[in-house]
Design a protein around this nucleic acid. Structure first.
Lengths: 124, 124, 124, 124
DNA sequence: GTGGTCTAGACCACG
DNA sequence: GTGGTCTAGACCACC
């Protein structure tokens, strides 16, 4: 079952977008596998303390992208192809890294300063 | 005059938030100094292809934070104290790094993998 | 439910101000009572033919004044204390009367002429 | 010369509209006559403490309505026909009275209460 | 030309 | 369905 243990809501970004990203990250990390069962809308909404409709919106978008499948019994399951995995991984990582680099460069930090800060905070 | 040359709009994040961040990054990088002139609402809105009101909202928030001075009918100027500079720098950097680390960890990447990717993308 | 039957938009005065005034007048007249339901933003906006956001602005200001309670996802209700009632009544009436008198005096009308015109137009 | 002695700016109504109304009221009251000289933009702007452009906007509108005429020497003069006088008087008075009555009725006041309050405040 | 404000429409999270 | 917020365009007073 997909874990939402380390999931923290960020302010200013739509919640359903954050849920989608979290699930995609689980896919990339290998934590979420093909055919894994997805938490029900109700269960997840009470777990995260947000509205079922918001969960529904996230699931709907994943379904449209072909990553999630509804099956009889009202349960939903992941549907991940190897190509999906690679595509998503590259997209997520490069997106994050590029945004991060742009931000760091905008503040005139050097690669050395950034890696130093990064290593320090990574443990911490 | 404040430069918006390397400014690219990201989808999903409120535009006025991005403008605020860009200006704060300029302050931290030393590119933007106290008393620097701020582009007018109209000039910047046509440059970025967005509505003047969106610029207005960003400037208003910066003014409320004491980093900018608006005077009706006249141009606007930055108003930066040395204390501001440090505070903003720390806030911006730690915020970015923490979000970045959380995202990378969520994908099960190691610090070694991340630094490698980072160094590779930093040039290029 | 609050009525907007006799509400007519005047040109030149901000719409949201007119809405606030209309509601306050209803409070003073006794037509609007504590805990009365307020028309939703959408309902009122279509009824009056104006943008929901304009209604929102009026409601927000009434909320800031403590006369109205908004709850996200739910309906909004009036929240009127007896003290509010008197304060609002006095403010509204004296404001209107003073403006009216200033205008009539500016046209050199006498109190007799004005009361005559007033009584004539009051019926009719 | 037109007097602006009892002129008080009201908040929320465009200044140039208020100037136009004041001048029209002067016409109705008989204080302002045909061929009267109008204060220069600069003089009036310093007298009222507002921007010359705003005066200009009011004068322009009066000119478009045919109530004001520019003549050689950069001075402006009133240009009032008897018909104008009647038309303006009726418009101004009925407009004010109707708005006033509507407001008083909205608060459930009777004609007797209103005339009483009016007479009291008229002296005061 | 400048900034301030009002109106408008779309999208979000929520009950 | 509800209210909250972001973006957009027009108008005002001002330098």
């Amino acid at each position: 079952m997909i874990s939402f243990e380390n999931f923290k809501l960020i302010d200013g970004v739509p919640i359903y977008i954050q849920i989608i990203k979290h699930i995609k990250q689980g896919i990339v990390s290998g934590e979420i596998l093909d055919n894994d069962e997805v938490p029900s809308r109700r269960a997840l909404s009470t777990l995260l303390g947000i509205n079922p409709n918001t969960i529904q919106k996230a699931y709907k978008e994943l379904e449209d992208e072909g990553l999630l499948e509804n099956r009889p019994g009202a349960k939903s399951f992941m549907s991940i192809n190897p190509e999906d995995l690679e595509r998503i991984g590259i997209a997520l990582i490069s997106q994050d890294i590029e945004a991060f680099i742009q931000s760091m460069k905008a503040m005139n930090l050097t690669i050395e300063e950034v890696t130093l800060l990064l290593e320090k905070k990574w443990r911490g």
